[in-house]
Structures are given as C-alpha cells and as structure tokens.
Amino acid sequence: MHPLLEHTVLGPNVHLYRFEAPDVARYRKPGQFVIVRISDHGERIPLTIADVDRDEGSITLIVQAVGKTTLEMAQLKAGDSIPDICGPLGEPTHIEKVGNVLCVGGGIGTAPLFPVTRAMKEIGNHVTSILGARNKDLLILEEQMKGVSDELIITTDDGSYGMKGVVTDAIKKLVQEDGRQFDQCICMGPPIMMKFVSLLTKELEIPCLVSLNPIMVDGTGMCGGCRVTVGDETKFACVDGPEFDGHLVDFDEMMARLTMYKTNEHDSLEHYMGESGCRLENAVKREGDK
C-alpha cells in the first residue's frame, strides 16, 4: 500500500499527489513514469513522475482529473492509501550537454518536463523554457520552471498572462524574429501541441524529443496496447519510449488510438457517479467551477 502524503489542488482539475513509494523513488530518472492502480477493481493507468524525494521515499505525480479513475483519485485525502504503484518504467531521458535547449510544456505536460529541464540545466545547457496554457489559472509549476531555466516565456491562448498565443508562436518569434539558435527541443504536453511543435521544429531543423502517454496496461512491453508508429517502425511507448523523435511520430494515429475507449470511459464515469451519488457530482462541479 502506498500512503498519500500530500494532495494539493494546483488549478482547475489539476492535482498534485505525493505518495510514499520508496522502491520507485530509488532508481527513477527524469523522463520515466509509473503505472498506478487506485483500488482493487481499478484500471492500470500510466502517469509521468514530476519529482521524487529519495530521503523521504516519495514520488510526486501531477494529474489532471478527466476520467473516472482520475476523478476518483481526486477524492483521496492525505493519509489515504492506494494499492499499487509500479515503476519507474520506460527509458529515462537522454541528458546531455548539447548547448542551447528549448523546453516546451503545455498543460500538465509541464509536470514531467520539470525534472528533465532541471537535469538539462544542471548538466550545463542554456535552457529556454516556454510554458503554454489556455489561461493564467491553468498554468502550473511556473516558479519551479523559472528556477531551472535561464529564461522562461509564458503563452496563454486568451492573453490573460504572458504572451497571447500558443507555444509555436513563441518558438517562431524566438527563432525567426530574434534569430536564436537551438540545438535541441524537448516538448511535453497535449498530443496536438506536440504534433505542431514537432512540425514546426522539423521545418526549423531543430531536433525535437516528445514524451508520449498512450493507453497502457502492463507497462512492461507485454500487451502492445501502447504501440505507436515512429518512422516506418511500430514501437512500444512503455519500453522503447516514452520519448521519441517528434519528427518521426505519427501523431494522428496516436491521437486516434487515445480515443479507443471514449464510450467506455463515459459509461464508467456514469456508473461511478450513480454509485457514489451526488458526492462526486458535486466534486466534479466544484472542479469545473474553479
């Protein structure tokens, strides 16, 4: 069992959980993920690791409450426990001094991006970070990212904070208007954002790493549910990834595969709501109001 040490709401539907998981914390490197199961009838969901504390034996996960499992997770209070955290899984990010690095995060993708950014900075790269969000309230880890970047640019769709626009607008400005050079881009965020950042960096001839989060069951290469097309090859995100060359990823296929259980997810949530009654409905409403 893994006790929940801290649960903080970072923004609308965005939750930070710090769980006791000493085995996971021990060898975890930036870029790796865990598979979590929150109850005995629960599903196994992959979640990227935002941070670890080896002394405490804990890991930090930042999760958006969107489906049945993540909404149920949002009901957990410090002191509660969940049965299963498996990991760390996946290949760690290749951390290397390459020169000028561009770290691009969107939504909760900023959570896994943070440890990678920190490692890229610590090894001696000049780090420029761009964080994108729909509006100011949805922005997370701004202070943390500022602390590990040489410069930080914020974009919001509605212009409520930072530069108005999307992350690709900021990249274009840096490269095309300011004439900046980048040796490596690392992008973690919603698939659609990673797709467009990959398209743009390909055009700008900047190598681009993306971190994929497809549907998984075991996370050890056994089921193949997480398969993605990279170049002309089928790769398993759980053991070959989760990071891949964004210029080679078939994002359209990946995004389609993420919708495989859309109807089921709806049924699962309905079922859960029916069972737990208005308690959860209110919680969802509260989440939405934030």
Binding site: S39, H41, G42, E43, R44, K68, T69, V217, D218, M222, C223, G224, G225, Y261, N264, E265, D267, S268, E270, H271, Y272
Partner: peptide, 23 residues
C-alpha cells in the same frame, strides 16, 4: 494482441466492466 485482450479480460476483470474500471 492476444496478451492485451486476455489481460484486460482476465487479470483486469473487463468482463465485469463497469463494475471494474478496465474497458
């Protein structure tokens, strides 16, 4: 894959979905 199909159905109990959470 057979592994995924059987794992969902057996280990994860998808035959009882939505009583269980794995579709």
């Amino acid at each position: 894959s057979a592994n995924e199909y059987l794992t969902r159905a057996n280990l994860m109990g998808a035959y009882s979905f939505p009583e269980t959470d794995t579709p």
